[in-house]
Amino acid sequence: MERVSVHVFINGLVQGVYFRKSLKEEALKNNVTGWARNLPDSRVEAVLQGRKEDVKKVVNWAKHGPPRARVTEVEEDWQCPAKEYKKFRIR
């Protein structure tokens, strides 16, 4: 099965609302690996890897996020995995 990778930037009210923790839970539920971190400009940045349909599920979840989040935009850059992640980490 082909593995894909997507680099995402999530804009909106996404810090201080458990976005990264919830994103990790969603990734683990869908067998997706990678990482997520807060950026100084209030966005969340993440790399998600796995089977295409699984990664798409997590990206679609990120478009609304956890209950307290207010996502305004998700920028997606789909690519072939350059580096393979074995688990999902919050940086």
Rank of each mutant, 00 (worst) to 15 (best):
P40Q: 08
K21D: 14
M1C: 09
Q79M: 13
S22L: 07
M1T: 14
I90M: 07
N11R: 14
W61K: 02
E26W: 06
G50S: 07
D41A: 00
D54W: 05
E2T: 13
Y18N: 14
K52W: 03
A27K: 02
D54H: 13
Q79V: 08
V74C: 02
A36N: 04
C80H: 13
L13C: 10
E45R: 10
H64D: 11
K52G: 14
F9I: 15
Y85C: 01
E76D: 07
R68P: 00
E73L: 11
A36E: 01
P40G: 07
V6L: 00
E75C: 00
M1V: 14
A62C: 13
N38R: 02
E84H: 12
Q49W: 00
K21A: 15
Y85E: 06
G50A: 07
D41W: 01
I10C: 03
R70L: 08
R51I: 12
E26M: 15
E25W: 09
E26L: 07
N31G: 03
V6N: 00
K29D: 07
G12A: 08
F88T: 06
T33F: 07
A46M: 04
G12P: 09
L23I: 02
T72G: 06
W61D: 10
T72C: 09
A82T: 14
K24R: 15
H64E: 13
V44L: 05
N30D: 06
V14L: 04
Q15M: 05
E25V: 10
E26T: 12
S22I: 08
G65Y: 02
E2C: 05
V8A: 04
S5E: 15
R68W: 13
R68Q: 13
R70S: 12
W78C: 00
I90Y: 11
R91D: 13
V6S: 02
K29P: 01
Q79C: 11
Q79I: 05
Y85T: 01
N11K: 14
A36V: 06
E76I: 00
T72H: 07
V17M: 08
S22V: 03
K29T: 09
E76P: 01
S22W: 10
L28S: 07
